[in-house]
Each structure stands twice: as structure tokens, then as C-alpha cells.
Simulated scan of single mutants.
Amino acid sequence: METIHKHVEESQVTISELMLPSHTNFSGKIHGGYILSLMDQIAFACASKHSKNYCVTASVDTVDFLNPIDVGELVTMKASVNYVGRTSMIVGIRVVSEDIHTGVIKHCNSSYFTMVSKNDEGESVPVPGLILDSEQEIRRFIKSARRVQLKHSRKDEFNHAAFDSSKYIDELKEHNVIVAMRPKK
């Protein structure tokens, strides 16, 4: 079977939407949950375009809300596949808002969605590889690969069955906590 690889730009997706009063939270800014919903949609579109399959969200990593979004601003989201594993992809999303009266553009959010490619039976299926054409694409791929490695090592370190809290007691002194463990019965 021939290995298929795609250029990053072949799967990129951009959407824009005008922010309406119905999208606001109690402080009058655009609700973060609404933005997350749009981000999930564009991650799905980008991953599905890359894999040519239905994709599901496996995790969302590092959602950084940097600037608030106001009613009447045009929000643009750009998504691209930054990393591919065997059946999963990490889709990077950049969110900017534009004041359509002044032309001022703000970077509002960046995030990384891990998407998994599925077949009609719901089984995970392999995804095409990536062809990296630029320094930026190489940087994004390696950064995502490292994020995957860190996630696995964190999972191993904090495995419930193997976790030993005594190793972390000194570290807890640096935090705003009081350790008041009761003896096990």
C-alpha cells in the first residue's frame, strides 16, 4: 500500500463570522463557550479534509483566551494540521477579531485540538502524513510532537495506581495549600 502525504495547505480551513449580541456573556463580551464551539467545528472541518474521514475530538489542549471579543467584530479562525500520528492529528487554530470600523485586528485565542479519524464502523483509521514546506510548519510539527510526548509522560507520572504523594510534599510547600491528610483506615 502506498503511503500518502499531503501538504499542510491542502487541509487548511478559514472561517469568518460576525459576532452578534446573542453570542454575549453576562459582561457583554462574546462568550468563550461560543468561540470554543466554533473552534471545534473548524477543527473537525480541517481534520476531516485532511483525512477524508469523519473525525472526532479526542482532546483540547491549551486554550488561551488572550483578548476579549466584542459584539460587531468580525472573528476569523484559521486551522491547519500541525501534526499527524497514526490515526490522530493535532489541529492548530488561531482566532483573530477585527473591528470592522477601525480595521484594528486582535489575536484573541490559540488552541490545539487532537482529532481522531474514524471509519463508518467508528474504528480509528490511519491518516495521511504531512509534507512540511516551511520553517513554520517544521516548528509547529516539532512543537506538537513534544506536546504529545509531555502528555504521555504526565500520564505515566500521575498514574493513579502508581502515584506516591510523598514524593511531592516538599513541592506543595510552594503552593497555597495546607496538607491535612488523615491516616487511612
Rank of each mutant, 00 (worst) to 15 (best):
S117D: 10
V91L: 04
V91M: 01
F113G: 01
P128C: 02
Y112Q: 09
S111V: 12
F113L: 10
V116S: 01
V91K: 08
S124T: 00
E121A: 10
D99S: 05
I93G: 03
S97T: 15
Y112F: 15
I100P: 04
H101R: 13
N109S: 15
C108F: 05
E98F: 08
M115G: 06
V125A: 07
V91P: 05
G92D: 03
I100Y: 02
V104Y: 13
K118R: 08
I105V: 15
E121W: 02
S111K: 03
S117A: 15
H107N: 13
H101V: 02
S110H: 06
S117V: 07
V116L: 11
E98D: 02
I93R: 08
S124C: 07
E123D: 15
V125F: 11
T102V: 08
S110C: 08
G103D: 09
T102H: 05
S117I: 04
E123T: 04
E121R: 06
Y112S: 12
N109V: 14
I90N: 13
V116D: 06
N109R: 12
F113R: 02
N109C: 15
P126L: 01
V96D: 14
S110P: 03
I90L: 13
M115H: 07
E121Q: 11
T102Q: 06
K106S: 12
I93E: 14
D120R: 11
E123L: 10
V95Q: 12
E123H: 14
N109L: 15
V116R: 09
D99I: 06
Y112V: 07
P126Y: 00
K118G: 00
G122L: 03
S117P: 09
N119F: 01
E121S: 01
T114Q: 04
R94K: 15
H107A: 03
S110W: 04
G122A: 07
I93F: 13
V116C: 07
S117R: 12
S110K: 12
V125Y: 01
G92R: 11
S124F: 08
E121F: 02
P126M: 12
H101L: 14
E98C: 10
V91G: 09
R94Y: 04
V104E: 15
G92K: 04
E121G: 13
N119R: 03
S111R: 12
V95N: 09
I105Q: 00
T102P: 10
F113K: 06
V91N: 00
S124G: 03
N109Y: 11
G129L: 05
Y112A: 07
H107K: 12
V116M: 10
R94Q: 03
H101E: 13
H107M: 05
V104I: 15
K106N: 14
S97Q: 15
N119W: 08
K118S: 09
D120F: 07
P128W: 10
C108N: 14
H101S: 13
G129M: 05
